[in-house]
Amino acid sequence: MTKCINIDGVNVPFEEGQTIMQAAENAGVYIPHLCHHAGYAPHGSCKLCSVRVNGRVCTACTFPAAEGQSVINNSRELQADRRRLTQMLFVEGNHNCPSCEKSGDCRLQAVAYYLRMEDDHFPLFYPPRPLDSSHPDILIEHNRCIVCSLCVRASRDIDGKNVFAVSGRGAHKHLIVNSPSGRLGDSDISTDDAAAHICPTGAILIKGQAFHRPIGQRLYDLERIDGSPHAGEASHEA
């Protein structure tokens, strides 16, 4: 007999060793997330996938699925709090969607739309953050980094290169490049690397391709991040 967990009243099968997120993804149940990516080691840092498991808050991307779990994913309270967490990610960096090359393909932006985020809510930090354009083909726009560490894991676990690391503490947490100068141009990253493509925001970009696909025809222009169609003006409702 297949083992199941229950997410928002629906039975979702899982295999031993899977996380709640893996079980949900296999069943086509969307749980908002940014630092999680299928096939990558779980990280559990963005906290957007926080769900209530038998009443307790856990991150779906790290918590093991177990028989009899009752998981609340899509509640008013969770969606409202996830919206606040997303707003935190926006105010700690410098995100300007209308002028960003990634707009429409950006998972941060798409999650924000999904969660109906309509303002920043919190005061902006305006941190001074540099741009690293030293590499001929790949750009790091630190202003948009949300320190999810997907590029760190991609480079280490998939590319076998360790091009990136996350350094600093607290508010000073930031992405660093593992090269003698600390610049991307002196690292051995290449455009074929998973690390060059995994960024959920516009922080790591392939140069010269920004507007190959026009705005309006991009991934999340066509459908919402949970796979559902855009519902007209629904996203403007409270």
Partner: peptide, 11 residues
């Protein structure tokens, strides 16, 4: 003293 790992504490 926040380690900066997770969003709610870092920000």
């Amino acid at each position: 003293e926040s380690c900066g790992f997770c969003t709610p504490c870092r920000v």
